[in-house]
Structure formats: C-alpha cells, structure tokens
C-alpha cells in the first residue's frame, strides 16, 4: 500500500496528465450527450453576453451593409407580393402546396464561424422570445441551420457548415431526395448524396428542402448544382451544391416555428408503432 502511494506521488504529474486527457476525450467522444449541456456551449450567460456586446460594436461599423441587405430583401418581397396580387385566384389550383403552417421569429446573429470543422451560430433570442429546440433557421437567401440549444435569452444554432448533421434535401425538378452535408473545407459548397444514377441532374438545377422532416417546410432554397460526380461502382451519384447563403455575412435570420409539428410527430410515431 505504501509503495503504491509512493508510486502515485512520484508520478503524480503523469497521472494528472492522463486523468485530464481522459476527461477531455470523454467530452469529445460523448459529444452528443454533452452538446445540450448549456454551461458547456455558447448559449450560456457569460459567453453569450460577451458575444452580444462585441457584436453591437461590430454592428455599428456594418450598419451600411446591413441596411443594404435589408432593403434588397424588401424590394424582392415587394416584387413577390406584386406578382401574387396579379395572379388570378380563380384559375389557381384548388389545393395548398405547403402542408405545414409556419410562424417566423426574427433574430440577430451575435456569433458566427465558418472556418471550423463544426460551425455554430449564436442568436440573441431565446426561450423567453418563443424559441424552442429543433426549430429551423433561415435567412432571405435560404437555409441557415437548426436550433441546438436555448437559454433564457440566447440560442445556439447548428450551422449547415457542420459535419455533425445533414439536411433532408431534394432536387427540385425531379423530387428525388437525399441527405445534404457540408464537405468540410469550403464554406460555399455542400454535397447531396444518395441520388440514384438514372436521375438526370444538370448543372444549375435548384436544390431545396424536402419537407420530409418537421424542421423546415418544403421548398426553401439550399443552393444550386455546381458539379455531378459519378464514382464508378457506386449506385448513387454525388452532387456538389453551391450554397445560396453566404455564411460569412449573416446579420439577421428568421427562426421558423412549425405550428403543426407536434401533431405531425405524434401521427408519424403512431404509424411507426403499428
């Protein structure tokens, strides 16, 4: 016993080193269990407040750019409204395409990264503003991410530029769908997989959300096809997609609440149980 104690004391530095490394590695490996532990991510009070303060300084210098993007969006919305008003209601088809009713909250991005392997955003809206887990986040150009964690006044968002998740996306023309995942290095491109060989996909085709998950309604823009890769021996083709959102310059986003979500999840669950 005594010699064991002496041994431990003699090599205490090495054992402490081992212990701390094991602890850190456990955090990494069991990431999925820890990622929603608020004190370990950026929606906790201290880090979110720091980012909030810093962002308000940055904002001051970017007001011009923010104004420009907002006014561009305004113009685009006004044009859409105009064309909708001009549509002859009588001749429009009698059913509604989107089945989910969606409410949107506006939020400001106070923290964003694009150069890590796992990128996240932090928003200045939280539980008290109605933000909940698993809500979709979009901006005027398309899909941004999904809410990962919420605190009282802040929310952490899993960005599209994060290898830990994939969006359910589809090829707009043919409706063939598959998971879309970020490739890693370049923040402008992601890859759509599991599209069968025979589906004809052309460069420039639109890729949109499939609406098969309750996070995003159908038809929100994700990007356009940049390149199609056929690897021999594979039954699927891999589609390189140029993302429509410029992740480097995000200021304001919309958080989507699917008001039929619970009903839908319950129905899908009961079907699966049968």
């Amino acid at each position: 016993m005594r010699s064991l104690l002496n041994f431990l004391i003699k090599y205490h530095v090495f054992f402490l080193f081992l212990f701390l490394e094991m602890f850190s590695l456990t955090l990494i490996v069991r990431y999925n269990n820890f990622q929603r532990v608020s004190f370990l991510n950026s929606s906790n009070a201290i880090s979110a407040t720091v980012f909030d303060r810093a962002q308000s300084v940055v904002d001051y210098f970017q007001l011009k750019r923010i104004n420009e993007t907002l006014s561009e969006e305004n113009t685009r919305l006004r044009q859409q409204l105009q064309s909708l008003l001009l549509t002859d209601i009588e001749n429009a088809s009698g059913y509604v395409v989107g089945v989910d009713t969606v409410e949107a909250y506006s939020a400001k991005v106070i923290r964003n990264s694009v150069n890590k392997q796992y990128n996240y955003l932090t928003l200045n809206k939280g539980e008290s503003d109605g933000i909940e887990l698993d809500m979709g986040v979009v901006c005027a150009d398309g899909v941004v991410g999904v809410v990962l964690d919420v605190s009282e006044n802040y929310a952490t968002v899993l960005s599209v530029l994060n290898g830990r998740w994939a969006i359910n996306a589809k090829h707009k023309e043919t409706n063939y769908f598959g998971p879309l995942q970020w490739g890693g290095l370049d923040p402008s491109f992601a890859y759509l997989e599991e599209i069968p060989y025979h589906v004809k996909i052309n460069k420039g085709d639109e890729i949109v959300t499939s609406g098969y998950s309750s996070i995003f309604p159908e038809g929100i823009s994700i990007g356009v096809v940049e390149e199609i890769e056929h690897s021999s021996g594979d039954t699927f083709q891999e589609v390189k997609v140029r993302l429509s959102v410029g992740f480097g310059g995000l200021f304001y986003v919309n958080v989507l609440k699917n008001t039929n979500k619970e009903e839908r999840i319950e129905l899908e669950k009961s079907t699966r149980n049968e």
Binding site: F23, I28, L40, N41, I46, K116
Partner: peptide, 12 residues
C-alpha cells in the same frame, strides 16, 4: 471550448 462549442477539443 465553452465559447466555441467544442467540449474537450481545446482542453485536451
């Protein structure tokens, strides 16, 4: 790690 949502990576 807390600031960049990477539990354990920078610590190790």
């Amino acid at each position: 790690d807390v600031f960049s949502n990477t539990p354990g990576i920078h610590a190790s």
